[in-house]
């Protein structure tokens, strides 16, 4: 439906058609070569909730996030954020990539990485003021890393690296947080710290969407789940989505005994 046609509709109808969801994906297809990694996915993530994107390896979970953000170019599809084209809403969206995707030997200190979350605000030449530094330090404190501000990033453990990435997203002060496998290869203490921060964000009314691998912890960590295996299988409250039938549809015969125990 075109923009003009939209404005001609009576308001109650229009409200039902405009998806105000923090992230609404329509008909998204991404393909590396001829085989689609994500095929014709429709999903709207619920505001103020924590949603896990769950699915087997190669299901296109990370690809979905990257394509939604325009990091990968999708073959087709439309993405809106908070009811607007995504590009207009970037300031309200924070993305936390997989920590293994960067070179941690890069010459930077922890505080420098966190300050990178302020790029949209600072722009090319904006002066870094004390309030910016204070925000970066607050973000570090929220993930329990304030003592590491001047530490070289190459000296951090995997869990600490992940928390620095989260702090960088916090510094941005976004309303929607998209995380790609935030618990991959981190220690138990970090996992607890991260989930506490994410739940804190949710309780402030912000929206959290995370690619998650461990089926066993989905009910404890998340409000909702989105089951994906190239195509969308189901989205909704965890208990309604993680049914045996849905899991079989997503995982086929590949569900290991540990995961079947859910």
């Amino acid at each position: 439906m075109t923009q003009e046609a939209m404005t001609m509709l009576p308001e109650p109808v229009r409200d039902r058609l405009v998806d105000e969801s923090p992230l609404a994906i329509r008909g998204l297809t991404v393909s590396y070569g001829e085989k689609p990694a994500v095929f014709s996915v429709d999903v709207s993530f619920r505001a103020g909730k924590m949603t896990a994107i769950v699915g087997p390896n190669g299901a296109g979970k990370s690809t979905l996030l990257k394509a939604a953000l325009g990091i990968l170019r999708p073959l087709s599809g439309q993405v809106t954020a908070f009811g607007h084209p995504l590009d207009e809403m970037r300031a309200r969206i924070a993305y936390v990539p997989q920590r293994a995707s960067v070179d941690w030997e890069f010459p930077a200190r922890v505080i420098d990485v966190v300050m990178m979350g302020l790029y949209r605000e600072l722009g090319l030449l904006g002066r870094i003021r004390p309030r910016h530094r204070a925000r970066a330090m607050d973000s570090l404190a929220r993930v329990g890393m304030e003592g590491f501000a001047t530490r070289q990033i190459g000296q951090l453990s995997g869990g600490q690296q992940q928390r620095v990435f989260l702090a960088r997203a916090l510094a941005q002060g976004a309303d929607l947080y998209l995380l790609d496998e935030p618990f991959a290869g981190v220690d138990a203490a970090t996992e607890r710290a991260i989930i506490a921060v994410l739940k804190g964000l949710r309780d402030e009314g912000r929206t959290v969407v995370a690619v998650h691998h461990d089926l066993a912890t989905v009910p404890a960590y998340f409000d909702r789940a989105f089951l994906l295996n190239v195509t969308a299988i189901a989205e909704g409250p965890v208990a309604e989505v993680m049914t045996e039938a849905n899991l079989r549809a997503a995982y086929g015969g590949r569900l290991g005994p540990a995961q079947q125990a859910v």
């Binding site: 990257k66 953000l69 325009g70 990091i71 590009d87 970037r90 969206i93 924070a94 993305y95 936390v96 990539p97 995707s101 960067v102 070179d103 890069f106 930077a108 990485v113 990178m116 790029y119 949209r120 600072l122 722009g123 090319l124 030449l125 960088r168 941005q172 998209l178």
Partner: peptide
């Protein structure tokens, strides 16, 4: 001098930079 910030951002973490609209 003008371009240093986006260049550092992209050099360290291109995905995050792209997510920020760079």
């Amino acid at each position: 001098v003008v371009l240093r910030r986006p260049m550092v951002l992209v050099a360290f973490d291109p995905q995050h930079a792209a997510g920020q609209g760079v």
